[in-house]
Simulated scan of single mutants.
Amino acid sequence: MESEKILENLEKIGFGRKEAEVFLELIKNPGGNGSQIAKALGYPRTTVYQNLDILQKKGYINSYLDKEITLYETMDINQIFEDYKKEVNNATNFLKEELKKVEVSGKQKQFYNLNSIEDIKDKFRAVLKKAEKIVYINTNLDLFEFEKELNKLKEKGIRVILFSFNHIEYKSLGVETYIRDSFNFNITESEKRIMVAADCSAAIIGSNYEGEFCGTYSENKLLANIVTEHIKNDIHLMKLEETFGKDVNKIITLEF
């Protein structure tokens, strides 16, 4: 019998070291009393009785009197481990569901790489589905690809604001659109970009100006606020151009 391996595995399922030793001793010599177990293990009787009490409370052993001496024996081993497996399965299933609901706390949220245009589109859909108040977008992606999600936001009365350099009409999707064409960009189909901020709590940035599409998603509030303010500033500058003309950029530069 590989006693050390048995003890190690008992520890893996929650036994303390001395609990495991007392338990194994009772399997080898059932019906022993505290003094006999202490002598066999070389521990003080107080230590053995403490561990016997723990094992009994856990339901792993039973005690009975014989001529006024308390004797101990293990419960049915098969039943012990069947009960243990059920408890572990129940606890695991409970934790899998409940831990999904736990709010992530802390000052810093993680940043996640998005390695393809499809990854970015999938994350964009997820952000739209979770939006509750307002979404800011700067992109030349075709928003009709996200018609289902945008119509849901429209039904809920959630404001969606788009800044773009491309003349595309999205009123049917409930998107508040601001177009700035003063730079006369000639953006080809292969040159795509996106910036999104939802509720100042989640953001996406992505582009493929340097070849393969890549991007970042985060629930970092600082990044979400930066993206929000960037899009707001683009809209504000566009409105200044409409009021004062395209030379407003020179005026702002000189004043600054």
Rank of each mutant, 00 (worst) to 15 (best):
K123G: 01
A126Q: 15
I137D: 00
T139A: 05
N140H: 04
L141Q: 04
V104M: 07
E118Y: 14
K100G: 09
E97Y: 07
D142L: 08
V104I: 14
F111E: 07
V104P: 01
L141V: 07
Q110F: 13
V104T: 12
K96F: 04
K129Y: 12
V127L: 11
I137C: 04
E147F: 06
K101F: 02
Q108T: 15
K107M: 09
K148W: 07
L141N: 01
V102E: 14
E145Q: 13
I137E: 00
K154V: 10
E98F: 00
I137G: 00
E145V: 06
N115S: 13
L153C: 10
K133M: 11
I137Y: 02
Q110D: 14
E97Q: 12
K130A: 15
T139V: 06
K152A: 14
K148Y: 13
V127E: 10
F111N: 03
L153S: 07
K109T: 00
K152E: 15
L128P: 10
K96T: 04
E149V: 06
N113S: 12
I117S: 09
E118G: 09
I117T: 08
G106V: 08
I117Y: 02
V135Q: 09
L128T: 12
G106L: 09
F124E: 04
I134P: 05
K130W: 05
N113P: 03
S105Y: 10
E118R: 14
K96I: 04
A126S: 15
E132S: 13
Y136E: 01
E147A: 14
K133W: 09
K100V: 11
I134A: 08
N140S: 03
V135Y: 06
F144A: 04
N113I: 06
I117M: 10
N115E: 13
K148R: 15
F124G: 02
E147G: 10
K107E: 14
E118I: 14
I120L: 13
N138T: 02
E132V: 08
L153F: 08
I120M: 12
F144C: 06
K133D: 15
E147V: 05
K109H: 06
V104N: 04
L99M: 12
K133A: 13
E97V: 08
I117W: 01
K123S: 03
T139M: 03
K107Y: 10
Y136A: 03
L141M: 13
K107W: 08
E132Y: 02
E147T: 09
N113V: 05
Q110Y: 12
V127Y: 02
E98K: 00
F124W: 08
D119M: 11
K101P: 03
L114T: 03
E145Y: 11
K121Q: 14
Y112D: 09
L141G: 00
D142Q: 08
K152P: 02
K107G: 13
N151K: 15
E103D: 11
N115P: 05
E118F: 13
K154Q: 12
F146T: 06
G106W: 09
E132D: 11
E132F: 05
Q110W: 10
E118A: 13
E103M: 07
L114P: 00
N140I: 01
E97C: 00
G106M: 10
D119N: 15
K123Y: 05
L153P: 05
E98Y: 01
Y112E: 13
D122G: 05
A131W: 02
L143M: 07
E145P: 02
I120G: 03
K129F: 09
F146W: 11
V127H: 02
N115L: 13
K154D: 09
